[in-house]
Simulated assay, not measured.
Amino acid sequence: MRAPIFRQATPSDTERCFHIETLAYEGDEAATREKIATRIAQYPEGFLIMELDGEIAGFINSGCAHEVVMSDEAFKELVGHDAAAPNVVIMSVVLDPAHQGQGHSTRLMRRFIEQMRAMGKQTIHLMCKEQHVDLYKHFGYRYVKPSPSEHGGMSWHEMVMEL
């Protein structure tokens, strides 16, 4: 296997990204095809794709805000997104299950953090399930609080990284 290639998403990536999103997330947790298309169209700089051997293996997508409200469902459709804002909000961190357990999610997250730092962003925010809190702490995120969000009928935890 060759080294991963990292790039911005393009509209032609929508279908494959939607497919991976539905494999990786349970039920209502997964973003819709429309939300993924919107994120690619409106903020490709914050939609990082990782390719392995010419195929999309995973991605991270995000938006930016001046004031972060993690439980804001409309923001998942980039309502209130401002590319110039200093705070990044990750919406999906997704790796095709066929490529999990090989260190690719670490490579993907590290590249995303590097890119956001290079863009002059100040913080990266995300929500995760309890079983992923320690993983994100390993990357340098700090636990903030349990989230009031009930997205997908699940319990979520807010995390932040100061860049």
Rank of each mutant, 00 (worst) to 15 (best):
E51P: 11
A74G: 03
R39K: 05
R110Q: 15
V160E: 13
M119H: 02
H151W: 12
L78P: 00
Q8H: 08
K76E: 12
A37F: 10
F6P: 10
T32F: 05
G27N: 14
A83T: 00
A83H: 00
R111D: 11
T32N: 03
K121R: 15
R33M: 02
F75P: 00
V79C: 10
S149Q: 08
E67K: 13
K145Q: 15
Q8I: 00
I5A: 10
A74P: 00
V93D: 02
Q100A: 01
P4E: 01
A85N: 08
P97D: 05
I113F: 11
M119I: 00
E130Q: 10
Q122H: 15
P86W: 15
D13N: 04
H138F: 09
P86I: 11
I20R: 03
E15Q: 12
E34R: 10
G27W: 09
V93C: 03
G152P: 06
G80M: 09
W156H: 09
A57S: 09
G27V: 06
S149I: 06
P146Y: 01
A41S: 13
D53V: 02
S105L: 04
D28S: 10
K129E: 13
E162Y: 15
R39A: 08
V69K: 09
T32S: 15
F112Y: 14
V79P: 02
D53G: 04
E77H: 12
T14I: 04
F47N: 01
L23G: 10
E158H: 08
M127N: 07
D96F: 09
T123P: 01
V160P: 12
A98V: 06
P148S: 02
T14V: 11
D28T: 07
L126C: 02
C17L: 14
